[in-house]
């Protein structure tokens, strides 16, 4: 199966690989995995406490090219967004952007999970219990 040029680009030149201080109150960490393929993905965000804007994001993924590309793209997309905006990112957006074939959709699901988990961790640290975000819109999606 051929990867799309966008997947290849993210795979050979991944953005934002690395890690942030997971003990910092401004940092949220999400570690997720999919038993279907055995991939693991760690995504971290650094949030400005005054604006709730995600100022930095890092990831480290062990998995196939699509999983790496999905998480690389996810870090690019969350940067500059508020946490609430970042929560509206859907795996289907990632599928579209990277032209992922059906067998690789679970990679995009993993990336969405990672964003959600990182934000959840950050909220927990900051005493906001994950409330349903922008729920009316999301439920219709």
């Amino acid at each position: 199966m051929a990867y799309s040029t966008k997947v290849l680009d993210h795979y050979s030149n991944p953005r934002n690989v690395g890690s942030l201080d997971k003990n910092s109150a401004e940092v949220g960490t999400g570690l997720v995995g999919a038993p279907e393929c055995g991939d693991v993905m760690k995504l971290q965000i650094k949030v400005n406490p005054a604006t709730n804007i995600i100022e930095d994001a890092k990831f480290k993924t062990f998995g196939c090219g699509s999983a790496i590309a999905s998480s690389s793209l996810a870090t690019e997309w969350v940067k500059g967004k508020t946490v609430d905006e970042a929560l509206t990112i859907r795996n289907t957006d990632i599928v579209k952007e990277l032209s992922l074939p059906p067998v690789k959709i679970h990679c995009s699901v993993l990336a969405e999970d990672a964003i959600r988990a990182a934000i959840g961790d950050w909220k927990k640290k900051n005493g906001q219990h994950s409330q349903p975000q922008a729920q009316p819109v999301e439920q219709r999606a």
């Binding site: 997720v32 995995g33 999919a34 038993p35 279907e36 795996n91 959709i105 679970h106 699901v109 993993l110 969405e112 999970d113 959600r116 988990a117 959840g120 994950s130 409330q131 349903p132 975000q133 729920q135 999301e138 439920q139 999606a141």
Partner: peptide
């Protein structure tokens, strides 16, 4: 078996909770 992760993600979206990890 291939859809577990997706199903759990959909559940998380619906409830706004952190996804229940399958492992």
């Amino acid at each position: 078996l291939e859809e577990q992760s997706k199903a759990a993600t959909e559940e998380a979206r619906r409830t706004g909770k952190i996804k229940k990890q399958v492992v």
